[in-house]
């Protein structure tokens, strides 16, 4: 999977490495800003109120 992505990136290896790191950082940012807050809210794993 990861090797497959690596083989399909364009350019010489330093360019590929940069692109690869950018993709990974982008995915982590998406997790932190959208996915994790959504998980926290949807599954109610951190509720502090009585109702």
């Amino acid at each position: 999977m990861y090797a497959w992505v690596w083989r399909h990136l364009p350019g010489p290896w330093p360019v590929r490495l940069l692109i690869y790191l950018a993709i990974i950082l982008g995915i982590i940012a998406a997790l932190f800003f959208w996915v994790f807050p959504w998980v926290e809210e949807t599954f109610g794993i951190n509720r502090v109120t009585v109702d």
Partner: peptide, 10 residues
Amino acid sequence: LLFVVYTLWG
């Protein structure tokens, strides 16, 4: 692991 980092620090 990233989710743990998110809850503890993020």
